Amino acid sequence: MNSTTTTSFLSQWTGQHLNVIDASIPKSDYIAIDLSKANQDLNTFDIASSSAWEDYITNYLKSHKKQVAFGGYLETRNLYNRSAYFSAQAEAEQRNIHIGLDLWCPANTAVLACFEGVIHSFKNNTNFGDYGPTIILEHNINNQTFYTLYGHLSEVSIGNLKVGDSVAQGETIAYLGEASVNGDYAPHLHFQIIKDLQNKVGDYPGVCCLNDLEFYKSNTINPEPILGL
């Protein structure tokens, strides 16, 4: 699909306040969070510890009286340094630029399909710091094909899925997983809109290196405006 055409096509949803987690949580209860390497607060706890991350996120939400913290598209983060899965010797080859949207909220929160589509694939990506259980949906709307990825789910979420099964927009497709199954992170949803899946199955990079950034900027779309954030 033509990259410009896809971006223009998806822009029709901008501001329509679509949901990818529990629709009973109003957008007024969402708050942006900065998890980039510029945030000095992240130097005050052990970023290698998922429990320390969960405490940080929980306290952040409590102090702002909100239910969901969101952000991270094209954000350069240090938190991936804890995992050899993302490391590289050359700085420009280190995978530390986030190319999806994170929504931080409690484990077992319902995950919703952003658009109508079918189950393209699913997989438990078990590398340390990876997605854990992951679902990818394929969407073909008005002859435009694109994909959405939902990562850091519970194991039960992928237990009874079938490739090709239809899903309705807003349908509950999964639930968020705990750190023990979600790649060792505080509970959150990694949500990504992808133009060309590049023949991937049950997985697609959610973090890239500086050398590959221009490609992934062109092959992914910032979900924030589509979700009304």
Rank of each mutant, 00 (worst) to 15 (best):
E155V: 09
G228E: 05
T109D: 05
Q12M: 07
K123E: 13
I221F: 07
P133D: 02
N211M: 09
T5R: 13
V20G: 05
C208G: 05
I57T: 09
E116I: 06
T148I: 09
E171P: 03
L161A: 03
K200P: 00
Y175H: 11
N2A: 05
Y85F: 14
N219W: 03
L197R: 07
A52Q: 14
S121C: 06
N182Y: 01
Q12P: 01
C209I: 04
L42K: 03
T14K: 12
N125A: 06
R77V: 09
S49Q: 07
G71D: 07
F70L: 10
F115P: 02
G206S: 11
W13F: 14
Q198M: 10
S28I: 04
E116A: 14
V118T: 15
C114Y: 09
H139N: 12
D102F: 00
D130H: 13
N127P: 00
F191H: 07
F9C: 08
A92N: 13
S218Q: 15
T148N: 08
S180W: 03
N160P: 03
E224W: 00
Q94T: 12
D203T: 13
Y131S: 03
V156T: 15
I226K: 02
Q198L: 13
N219S: 09
Y80R: 02
C208D: 09
P225Q: 13
K65N: 15
P225E: 12
I226H: 04
S8H: 09
G151H: 01
P187S: 14
S51R: 13
L176E: 02
H190K: 04
G151V: 00
F45I: 13
N43S: 14
L213Y: 06
N127H: 13
D203Q: 10
N219P: 05
L74K: 12
V156H: 12
